[in-house]
Amino acid sequence: MMNATRLNSLTVRTPEGITFGFLLASPVIRFFAYAIDLACILAIFSAFRVIVLVFSIASLDFGIAIQTVLLFALQIGYGMGWEWLFRGQTPGKRLLRLRVIDAEGLQLQFSQIVIRNLLRAADSLPALYLVGAVAAWFSPRGQRLGDIAANTVVTRIVPIETPHWDQVLAGKFNSLRDYPHLEARLRQQVRPVELSLALQALLRRDQFDARARTELFAQLGAHFRALVVFPPEAVSEISDEQYLRNVVDSVLRPRRK
């Protein structure tokens, strides 16, 4: 089941009822990727011309024939070859973090790659991909005619890193645990949005530079220290970051029944 909005996103709903989404690439960024690929085609063609020159020494006629066939094969086969080898990516798309995918989230088939590339012949009419650009502009999923026929979309790849779960799962000593009545009050006082903020700060700690991290944890630490005041012996010796980790642990840890 599919649902597409004009918000540049494609949502796939699986038969199990799970929903996941893809960010769609805009026609402008796709044009830039195509421009890079065009430059690559010219570069490859220039490199192969050396071979053509060698053939030309033996026979000029044969050399020109090879050159004609080579340029044609590059124009037609470049997109197909790369997209098949690199699962929907050409060098231009790879550089700009784009990928062609099946519009239903399924595996990209070879026939889909061939069709979307062959139909460039229609999309590029009358010049400069005008038909393709108009089609992409009016299509809710930014599809040119080739994409509509092949049932593909071009998506933006958002780099997904494995979350730093060790920040939550550290299991380090929590000095707040010695004060269960204050922990209980903390659980009452902390709102979900505050907890989310603290958790995200811990999970993303490595993405901040040192100074920003120190400032962020100082601000968050001051905020949480003011919510519930723990005895000095529980909190004075620990850093703001450790204090936050303790707060998150105290709030998220299951309570004993």
């Binding site: 796939v12 699986t14 038969p15 799970i18 996941f20 893809f22 099946d102 989230g105 399924l106 595996q107």
Partner: peptide
């Protein structure tokens, strides 16, 4: 899940 869905379905 998105990647696995493509393979499984």
């Amino acid at each position: 899940v998105g990647r696995a869905y493509g393979e499984i379905h």
